[in-house]
Nucleic acid binder design. Structure first.
Lengths: 302, 302
DNA sequence: TCAATAGTGTCTATTAGACAGTATACC
DNA sequence: GGTATACTGTCTAATAGACACTATTGA
């Protein structure tokens, strides 16, 4: 694909050029990956009849080193010089969850100077979705400093400013991360600017309590992406076991979207994404529920 | 937000730690931005009655240096050590198009080792959409090596493989970039793997003629994103002048989506994204058309 | 028996697709 | 007058929302 015969201004062929190319000449930032590892877990049942409530959980690591020592951060690490970014993400994921074959997707690359006090660090964020029943080792066992936090997300304020040719909408979003160990909070301001025939979004941290770096913005971004893609992809199935009930699946949608859905409409909507099995739940304290599995061909069937 | 009193294992406070932190200790990749600058341009009218055809165009730069000397590449450059990635993208955009206030969006970060033969380069791709009538300097004037190419995109082959718990769908996509100077082609393989309850996509270059680096993959990715977002955002309005006819707008949709739309349905769909004006086109060789402008409040009106 | 969930039928409102039909300037 | 586009009305099909109603288990 490359061209090996043409010479440049110095009269070098591509081969010669590459030989004399001095890598150290240019200043370079560090590149890291940061992982948003999400799962859905069941809470304790209130009583023998009720179904367990489902909660969205995020995996965080307590920092044992500067900077942000003692605060909680997304798992992540440096991208190796001979490692692809995806490979670095998969490596981090594996080291935290001990599962392969997880749904994983690149989200966004964050690179404001000053986002890491050590040096210039550019971070590529990834979202991974895990079926919590498949977690072989629970976070917290091997790594005493890793823990799942319940992820809460709420729009607390909206403020609109009229502009000459459009407007600006500022939303304050409160993120709360809760478990037995700690409660972390952050407020992220998402600004939507509609001007000159186009809409632009920007995010900044207003306040961050106990969350390291700019990780709160990454969390806000991730949940928005998750909510969006839930509606038109098969992403939800990464969060449930191989066999699941439709009510379970519905609750996954509900906890992510933050609103209740009507069972009839929901079932119609996901009808061709699932295949029924002959199996049913038992000992439920109420009518048993049929178990379904994911239909990998849902996009190609009517 | 950071914590300045806690000491780490070496007994250092955060301030002390940062003082002794040696930046040069770690191997680091170079980071660049690559810009997909797209616009829609009118072709010559066939005769006085007919409307001009619209074409999707991409701005490319002819490389005067190794590697890939003589081939065409996306405009781009290194991210400065004290510059945000967005700022680098805006800088590149401004230097090529000489307009600010353009719609711009980060697409994806590409970082396979070996994607640049010089050294490890991680590239963050951005898409920018430009109204061609607002281009003050046409590419090709100041930079003799910059040129607009017509962007053609076609699925040429689909191949499906059944897997144990799912399937794999490989699509071969042919990209063609055409202008008076050159015709560049590339084939990109997009693989959709549905396995274990989740779908994953990957892209690779099968063949690239005259297009530098892995830029053909970035192009393929960009056009997919553009097509998707066209349907549920106001992105199309970045590609038309302030005043436009509905037929013009429809043709923008058609050329991007690669299919014809029905006028009645189209007008219904975008009805609340536009505001009518009192103005009409003139000297059209047929019935005049009403001019519209973008409605920045379309999301908040019924 | 009854609490709690499982699952379906149907009415209505909204939206998308198809297409026919009317309107109008400019050469 | 005829060509090419502008624009609307309406029928139909598909989809989403609402809600009532029936079914079934385990303590």
């Amino acid at each position: 694909m490359s061209n090996s015969t043409i010479k440049d201004k110095q009269g070098l062929t591509e081969e010669q050029f590459l030989e004399q190319y001095d890598v150290s000449k240019y200043d370079r930032p560090s590149v890291t990956v940061d992982m948003l590892i999400l799962t859905i877990m069941d809470e304790e049942k209130e009583n023998y009849r009720k179904l367990p409530e489902k909660k969205l959980k995020l995996l965080l690591i307590k920092r044992g080193e500067h900077p942000y020592i003692g605060q909680w951060a997304l798992p992540g690490g440096f991208v190796g010089v001979n490692e692809s970014i995806d490979a670095a993400a998969i490596r981090e994921l594996k080291s935290e969850t001990n599962i392969d074959n997880i749904y994983m997707e690149q989200l966004y690359t964050w690179g404001d100077p000053g986002r890491d006090p050590r040096t210039r660090v550019i971070s590529c964020s990834y979202m991974a979705l895990v079926d919590s029943t498949a977690l072989k080792i629970k976070a917290g066992d091997d790594a005493a400093d890793a823990a799942w936090f319940e992820f809460k997300y709420k729009i607390v304020q909206e403020h609109r400013t009229e502009l000459e040719k459009g407007h600006q909408l500022e939303r304050l979003i409160k993120i709360e991360l809760v478990n037995e160990l700690a409660t972390l909070t952050a407020t992220v301001k998402v600004t939507e600017t509609v001007k000159n025939r186009s809409t632009r979004y920007s995010r900044e941290i207003v306040d961050s309590q106990g969350i390291a770096f700019d990780h709160a913005v990454m969390m806000e971004y991730a949940i928005e992406r998750l909510r969006n893609k839930l509606e038109y992809t098969d992403l939800a199935f990464s969060l449930v076991p191989e066999l699941f009930t439709l009510t379970e699946l519905q609750k996954v949608y509900e906890v992510i979207l933050g609103k209740e859905l009507l069972a009839a409409a929901f079932r119609r909507k996901i009808a061709n994404m699932v295949i029924e099995t002959e199996q049913y739940t038992r000992d439920a304290g109420h009518r048993p529920s049929q178990l379904f599995r994911f239909n990998p061909n849902w996009r190609y069937e009517k």
